[in-house]
Amino acid sequence: MPTTPDMTTASDPGLLDSLQHQVAVFARRAEQTRLGGVGQVRNSMDRAAYLLLNRLDKEGPMGVKALAASMGIDSSTVTRQVAPLVDTGLVKRTSHPEDGRAVVLQLSPRGQARLDEVRSSRRELMAELTQDWDPVERESFCALLTRFNSALSARQTSQTAPGGEVPATPES
């Protein structure tokens, strides 16, 4: 039988305190790593940029509205986040093949190269950090983290997001 939040809190508040603390530490360390805090400047890429480039790479060229919907964020947020990516040549704006008035965003060759570099560096970092883990531990950690992110996403979906934003998806 699923446990309600009240039952879980009542049964082991110390474990939940530890969990929330470890999530906070993880968020801080992840941010430090993203900023090159472990000595790997090539890891450094803004989180929004990484997620947008990653989405365009996985799903292909698309309009702002489609990109916003697939990421679970507002179109105005995507427009604001894409602007510097266009300015730096990581994303290209092109005309829609069927409707020349519509704009389509796509990963540029420079954007693909930069995304590949960041992914490779981060993959190396993950290998380094989990080098003494066996494959089952890596798979379990990934599955649990995915489950945790999905639960966060489901919670956001059940609530009204501030500022009219669409609730985020697990990959956002």
Rank of each mutant, 00 (worst) to 15 (best):
P162C: 08
A102C: 08
V86G: 04
L51N: 02
M7C: 03
K58A: 14
S158G: 12
T3E: 11
I73T: 12
P170H: 00
A168L: 06
E128P: 03
S70F: 04
P13A: 05
R28M: 12
T146P: 06
E98F: 07
T3M: 13
P109G: 10
L16N: 11
S158N: 10
V38G: 14
L152T: 08
M7P: 01
A151D: 00
S11Y: 02
L53Q: 02
V166N: 12
T169S: 04
M126T: 12
T77P: 09
D6E: 09
V38C: 14
D116V: 00
A69P: 05
L56C: 02
P162L: 07
D87I: 04
S95M: 00
T160G: 11
E139C: 05
T9K: 13
A161M: 05
G163F: 04
L90S: 00
R138D: 07
L56N: 01
I73R: 06
A127M: 11
G164N: 03
L105Y: 01
M1P: 10
S76V: 14
L19R: 10
T3Q: 13
Y50H: 11
V136C: 06
A10K: 08
V136K: 12
A127S: 12
E139Y: 07
S108K: 04
G164H: 01
L56F: 00
A49R: 01
D134V: 12
N149E: 09
Q159I: 02
P170E: 00
F148N: 10
V25F: 09
P2H: 12
E171C: 05
A27Y: 04
L67T: 01
L35A: 04
T8I: 10
L105F: 00
Q20N: 15
P135G: 01
L105S: 00
S140H: 09
P167K: 11
T157W: 09
P97E: 07
F26V: 11
V103D: 03
V86H: 06
H96Y: 08
L19W: 10
G72E: 05
Q20K: 13
L125G: 02
R110P: 12
E171T: 11
Y50P: 02
T94C: 06
T160Q: 14
P170G: 00
L125N: 03
E59T: 10
E171R: 14
Y50E: 11
I73D: 05
A168T: 06
A102K: 15
S44V: 05
S150R: 15
L51A: 03
T9S: 13
L85C: 02
V103Y: 04
Q40K: 14
E128T: 04
D46M: 08
V86I: 12
V78Y: 00
S158R: 11
R28L: 13
G100Y: 03
V41D: 13
I73F: 02
K65Q: 10
S108N: 08
K58T: 13
T8V: 09
N43M: 09
G37W: 10
E124L: 05
R155Q: 08
